[in-house]
């Protein structure tokens, strides 16, 4: 079971998480006790500079986004990485005075863990905002699908098809890119299956609307049946898009909690 739910986050955090985990084990087993830690000024300064750059770019991202949840959730992550960076700087200064300092070792572990945790919070917050972008497109399609109910002429149908096409293409592209990003195989498959169903149902819906329009204009029988058929296809498509929206919001942790 993957710990990180996207490949990007996994590729960034997995290696450093393993390193820190190993360091913690060494610390707990007393392997670092009684040993002098050398001058860490250079690697700590590199972390400090990287934190400063990340927070600067992060703040720019928060300023430019219209996503209110990201504006709210991102700043605590900045504080977490900045505080952790300060701990590392303090540890480095303490070790300069005493390479055997025990509190300095604790600060190093706390600081490293804090950087990992803060970076994880930041990346997850950003990823959630990216998911919300995809969901907005999906909801736009859901909304436009309901317009099918007011299509009564062939002209309307042409306009409807023309308007629906680009949105569908955009949603399909976004879902394809997202499923490739996910580390959880089941979630990937669920997105692919639902998107394929939506794509298969699109011409069926257009055809159902066409039959409804033709039946209605000929003033013969079968209008009710055509309407039922149109509604059935519309409801099936809506259900699949709602399923896509649900799966997009799942993370590996949801699955773990459920298990």
């Amino acid at each position: 079971m993957p710990v990180f739910h996207t490949k990007t986050i996994e590729s960034i955090l997995e290696p450093v998480a393993q390193q820190i985990s190993h360091l913690v084990i060494m610390h707990e087993e007393g392997e670092v006790d009684g040993k002098a830690i050398p001058d860490l000024t250079v690697p700590v300064a590199a972390v400090q500079a990287a934190v400063s750059n990340l927070v600067r770019v992060g703040k720019e991202t928060v300023q430019t986004t219209e996503d209110q949840l990201m504006k709210r959730d991102m700043p605590p992550a900045f504080i977490k990485v900045e505080n952790s960076s300060s701990k590392l700087v303090q540890a480095s200064q303490m070790l300069k005075a005493d390479p055997y300092s025990v509190p300095a070792r604790d600060y190093l572990i706390d600081g490293s863990r804090g950087i990992l945790s803060g970076t994880s919070d930041l990346l997850l917050t950003f990823d959630e905002a990216e998911v919300r972008k995809i969901i907005r497109v999906c909801k736009g399609i859901l909304e436009y699908l309901t317009v099918a109910e007011v299509v009564e002429t062939m002209e309307d149908l042409i306009t409807y098809t023309k308007n629906l096409g680009p949105g569908m293409t955009k949603m399909s592209k976004m879902i394809e890119e997202r499923q490739q990003e996910l580390t959880h195989q089941e979630h990937r498959q669920m997105l692919v299956n639902s998107m394929n169903t939506v794509k298969e149902l699109l011409p069926v819906l257009i055809s159902a609307i066409k039959i409804f329009v033709t039946t209605k204009s000929s003033r013969g029988g079968g209008t009710e049946e055509a309407e039922r058929n149109r509604r059935f296809t519309f409801e099936k498509m809506s259900a699949e898009i709602n399923e896509i929206i649900r799966v997009l919001q799942l993370t590996t942790w949801d699955e773990d909690a459920w298990a």
Binding site: L40, P43, L54, T61, S112, L122, F126
Partner: peptide, 29 residues
């Protein structure tokens, strides 16, 4: 800015990894 933020996060993770390595290498050595 979003992509740049992800790039900077990657740089920070690498710098943290290097730091942890430096601490560990000494302990192992």
């Amino acid at each position: 800015p979003g992509r740049e933020m992800v790039r900077q996060a990657r740089i920070l993770a690498q710098a943290t990894s290097d730091l942890v390595n430096a601490i560990k290498m000494d302990a192992e050595g």
